[in-house]
Design a protein around this nucleic acid. Structure first.
Length: 272
DNA sequence: AGCGGAACCTGTCGGC
DNA sequence: TGCCGACAGGTTCCGC
């Protein structure tokens, strides 16, 4: 489910209420989210710690802990962090629940059980973060950087943009929207995106992500904010999920193909 | 380097 | 109504 805008939405909302809260109890209801860490060990590392600021790298959430360490989370397809101001009854998809001082509860819910949580001493210790490329909101992500980086690969540009080791944060929905706005076919080889097209791609990336964050992310079915409200960017999608509907720019029917075992939506006339 | 396929696990939806 | 397959916003691993 969540790509950069959804994770960013959750991070911003958590930062309004989480920093300064002490963890009183940790309930692990399903341990496979912990990546092999034993539930008791996970609990012991967290109980008594205090949450600091929450950050993000790509699609990972990073919770700073005091006096030390970090909780690193990934929502994968259906993960959610719900922050309930008062104690609430357990729900079927609750995986880990953190009871906080003051009575609030932070709940990690995940119907598909793909999401992950890990406690680390130093972020450098956590391999998955080290594999990430440039964050799509990083200041170093520029049109020049993009034009140069694209040139080294013959992979289809859609695949290239979704590779977290190159740019971190983009997924299937936003890549479709970005390529549409840039007028670039998802099938085009990355190295065939010239300087002018790379500039359009860069601009579209910043524009789509910025707008999606302002709209609190996209809810197709699962994504929820920390108060369980939906996002609103689904109302602004131009091609994702719109196979057969007229292209908003030219009226041609939006196409749907498969690339890397994922659905790709695009306008076969506008995107070349 | 890069692709296809499978795996991780569950829920939902459409067709018959 | 019920069963079955396809599909879902992500990542990783394996073989070619």
């Amino acid at each position: 489910m969540p790509e950069l805008p959804e994770v960013e939405t959750v991070v911003r909302e958590l930062n309004r209420a989480l920093p300064g809260r002490r963890i009183g109890e940790v309930e692990v209801l399903r341990a496979n989210a912990l990546g092999g860490c034993e539930a008791g060990v996970f609990r012991d590392r967290l109980v008594g710690s205090e949450f600091g600021r929450v950050g993000r790298r790509g699609k990972f959430l990073i919770f700073r802990l005091a006096p030390r360490g970090f909780l690193v989370g990934h929502l994968r397809m259906t993960g959610k962090f719900i922050l309930a101001p008062k104690p609430v009854a357990r729900l079927p998809h609750d995986r880990v629940r953190f009871r906080l001082d003051g009575g609030a509860t932070l709940i990690f819910q995940d119907s598909r059980c793909f999401g992950t949580l890990a406690v680390v001493e130093r972020l450098a210790d956590y391999g998955p973060l080290g594999r990430l490329g440039l964050d799509a909101l990083s200041r170093r992500f520029t049109a020049d950087w993009l034009a140069r980086a694209l040139g080294s690969s013959r992979a289809p540009v859609k695949h290239w943009l979704m590779d977290q080791a190159r740019i971190a944060g983009l997924g299937n929905i936003y890549v479709a929207e970005i390529l549409f706005r840039a007028g670039i076919s998802p099938l085009r080889a990355a190295c065939d995106v010239d300087r002018a097209a790379a500039a359009r791609l860069h601009r579209a990336t910043r524009k789509v992500l910025g707008l999606a964050i302002r709209k609190n992310g996209t809810t197709i079915s699962d994504f929820r904010r920390v108060d369980e409200k939906t996002g609103e960017f689904q109302n602004f999608l131009r091609v994702y999920g719109k196979a057969g509907q007229p292209c908003p720019a030219c009226g041609t029917a939006i196409g749907r193909i498969r690339q890397q075992q994922r659905s790709t939506f695009f306008c076969p006339a506008c995107q070349t």
